[in-house]
Amino acid sequence: MEELIALRELLQTGNLSSALLMIDEMEEMSKKDILNQIRSYSIILLLHLIKQKAENRTTRSWEVSIRNSTLEIQDLNARPNSKGNYLNNQELRESLDSGFRQAINQASLEVNEGRYDVCELEKIVDKQEICDRAMMIISSQRDLD
């Protein structure tokens, strides 16, 4: 809110160059927030895919979480006005890759009631396979809309 008040003052005083810089900063902050949200939902998606693979089973709760995380990623990634995306497929994949560490850390507490530490769990699940599956799910559900 403070930024909007400052922006109004800059515009009212005719300081357009500073106003434009402030708009650029606000756009960057907004984009960063969206990217952080995409990363958070990516971690949830990866967590449940890791659990499915490690336990060789699934639950309705995990399936719903996977679907909801996927829908949130798709919605957040879609630019409302330009019909494009904030992240292209390569950037989305990089986000999944970087979120994998947090997902497997959390999964080590949940898989088989915390039976495995991170190193053991990394031997059971393949990062590449999990991230590939996540990308496939995100892409295939996007095509269904």
Rank of each mutant, 00 (worst) to 15 (best):
residue 84 G to Q: 13
residue 104 I to H: 08
residue 130 I to T: 05
residue 115 R to W: 09
residue 119 C to P: 02
residue 83 K to L: 12
residue 59 T to P: 01
residue 80 P to D: 07
residue 125 V to W: 06
residue 115 R to A: 07
residue 59 T to K: 10
residue 93 R to K: 15
residue 119 C to L: 06
residue 55 E to M: 08
residue 65 S to V: 12
residue 89 N to I: 05
residue 81 N to E: 12
residue 121 L to Y: 08
residue 115 R to F: 14
residue 101 R to A: 10
residue 67 R to Y: 14
residue 128 Q to P: 01
residue 61 S to C: 01
residue 96 L to M: 04
residue 127 K to M: 09
residue 74 Q to W: 05
residue 96 L to E: 10
residue 89 N to D: 15
residue 93 R to I: 07
residue 55 E to F: 05
residue 58 T to D: 06
residue 127 K to F: 04
residue 105 N to I: 01
residue 118 V to F: 00
residue 67 R to W: 08
residue 75 D to W: 03
residue 70 T to A: 01
residue 113 E to D: 14
residue 118 V to C: 00
residue 95 S to K: 03
residue 76 L to S: 05
residue 84 G to E: 14
residue 121 L to T: 00
residue 119 C to E: 13
residue 57 R to E: 13
residue 128 Q to S: 03
residue 76 L to M: 11
residue 104 I to R: 05
residue 71 L to P: 03
residue 97 D to M: 03
residue 92 L to I: 10
residue 117 D to Y: 03
residue 114 G to T: 12
residue 85 N to G: 05
residue 68 N to L: 12
residue 127 K to I: 07
residue 78 A to K: 14
residue 102 Q to C: 02
residue 131 C to T: 14
residue 68 N to R: 13
residue 130 I to A: 00
residue 103 A to N: 07
residue 114 G to Y: 11
residue 111 V to W: 04
residue 105 N to V: 00
residue 107 A to N: 04
residue 94 E to T: 12
residue 81 N to T: 13
residue 83 K to D: 14
residue 129 E to R: 09
residue 89 N to C: 02
residue 94 E to Y: 11
residue 63 E to M: 15
residue 80 P to C: 02
residue 123 K to L: 05
residue 77 N to A: 02
residue 122 E to H: 07
residue 120 E to Q: 15
residue 105 N to T: 12
residue 116 Y to T: 07
residue 61 S to E: 15
residue 59 T to Q: 08
residue 81 N to Q: 09
residue 82 S to V: 11
residue 84 G to D: 14
residue 92 L to N: 11
residue 94 E to I: 07
residue 128 Q to I: 06
residue 65 S to I: 12
residue 79 R to K: 15
residue 57 R to I: 05
residue 126 D to H: 06
residue 66 I to D: 03
residue 59 T to R: 09
residue 79 R to S: 13
residue 95 S to Y: 00
residue 97 D to F: 04
residue 110 E to D: 08
residue 66 I to Y: 05
residue 119 C to D: 07
residue 114 G to R: 11
residue 81 N to M: 11
residue 71 L to N: 02
residue 84 G to Y: 05
residue 111 V to Y: 03
residue 105 N to D: 10
residue 98 S to I: 06
residue 100 F to N: 00
residue 91 E to S: 12
residue 81 N to R: 12
residue 73 I to E: 04
residue 114 G to E: 11
residue 114 G to M: 09
residue 109 L to I: 01
residue 62 W to P: 00
residue 89 N to T: 11
residue 72 E to A: 14
residue 130 I to K: 03
residue 129 E to C: 01
residue 106 Q to G: 00
